[in-house]
């Protein structure tokens, strides 16, 4: 299990810098949001936020650069590789739980909270607050329609969402084909399949943006549109952010393939991003079923 060559890095400046960047991001975001809430311009908050984001971006380049340098310098044993694998697996598990919180909220609202508001069952006492409210899902008629004007309609699952499902599922296959090609050291094939994966991801994101615009401008489906809009946008929004991040990571990995990194035996960077991409894909299947179809 243990080998004598486990690599313990020397001192590093990246973590403390990254903590500073994270603080700037968080403090800047807080200041900006609070300023916007009272209709003050976001001056200082915005500056801190952008400074933090820029700093974090540079740090990630430097820190990962370090790791890549060490990896290509042959410092990482098979045991180190296993540490990375455990690390990535548990990170993805934490992401699963993050989405689980929002899925849980969706199920609770659909199955319990909204019917109770409509007076159903022994907990239906809140019918006293809004006697005219009738429960339905999708919730087009929030109890207090003045504060939360409900959407006129919701997105039909059988147009863009179905197309997007096909795109993401296909991209999982193309990425697997890229991996198979890498295992056989057919590097041109790797580049082709990875490029196709990235294109599919970008097209998915384009459709997602189009769908958001349509939701806002034509359907009245907004963040303010009651709890349907809230659950819709938090689930699809965080998923979209993850697809964006995954696409960026795929681009970096493709760049590394192009400059000659990875071989058929050692390519955990590639695999980690592939795991992440498949995870994003699986979340989408859940979204398609529970947010759009059912």
């Amino acid at each position: 299990m243990s080998s004598s060559t486990y690599y313990v890095p020397e001192q590093s400046r990246w973590p403390i810098l990254a903590s500073t960047a994270l603080f700037l991001l968080a403090f800047g975001a807080g200041t900006l949001l609070n300023a916007l809430k009272v209709d003050r311009g976001g001056g200082l908050g915005l500056v801190l936020l952008l400074a933090g984001a820029l700093m974090m971006g540079l740090i990630l380049v430097g820190w990962f650069g370090n790791v890549i340098h060490e990896s290509r310098g042959g410092l990482y044993s098979a045991q180190m590789d296993r540490s990375f694998r455990w690390g990535m697996s548990w990170f993805i598990f934490s992401e699963v739980m993050f989405f689980a919180a929002f899925f849980g909220a969706l199920f609770y609202v659909r199955v319990l909270a909204v019917p109770w508001l409509g007076g159903e069952g022994e907990k239906g006492v809140s019918q006293m607050l809004w006697p005219d409210f009738t429960a339905q899902w999708p919730l087009l008629n929030p109890p207090d329609a003045e504060r939360f004007p409900g959407p006129e309609a919701v997105i039909s699952p059988w147009q863009i969402p179905l197309l997007n499902t096909c795109l993401l599922v296909t991209s999982s296959f193309t990425l697997t084909l890229a991996h198979k090609a890498l295992l056989k050291d057919e590097r041109m094939q790797v580049r082709r399949w990875m490029f196709l994966t990235i294109v599919l991801g970008v097209v998915f994101l384009g459709f997602q943006v189009y769908e958001y615009v349509e939701a806002y401008h034509e359907l009245g489906l907004t963040l303010h549109a009651g709890v349907y809009g809230a659950t819709f946008f938090i689930l699809t929004g965080f998923h979209g952010l993850h697809v964006t991040l995954g696409t960026l990571m795929l681009m970096i990995i493709l760049g590394r393939v192009v400059v000659g990194h990875f071989d058929s035996r050692q390519h955990f960077g590639f695999e980690a991003v592939a795991w992440y991409w498949h995870f994003v894909d699986v979340v989408w299947i859940g979204l398609f079923l529970f947010v759009y179809v059912l």
């Binding site: 609202v109 909270a113 939360f148 709890v227």
Partner: peptide, 18 residues
């Protein structure tokens, strides 16, 4: 608080108990 959703607000169909 900042984006007008109603997860924990019954007026929009949410629930503080959530």
């Amino acid at each position: 608080i900042h984006f007008g959703t109603s997860f924990f607000n019954a007026a929009g169909g949410g629930d503080p108990v959530l």
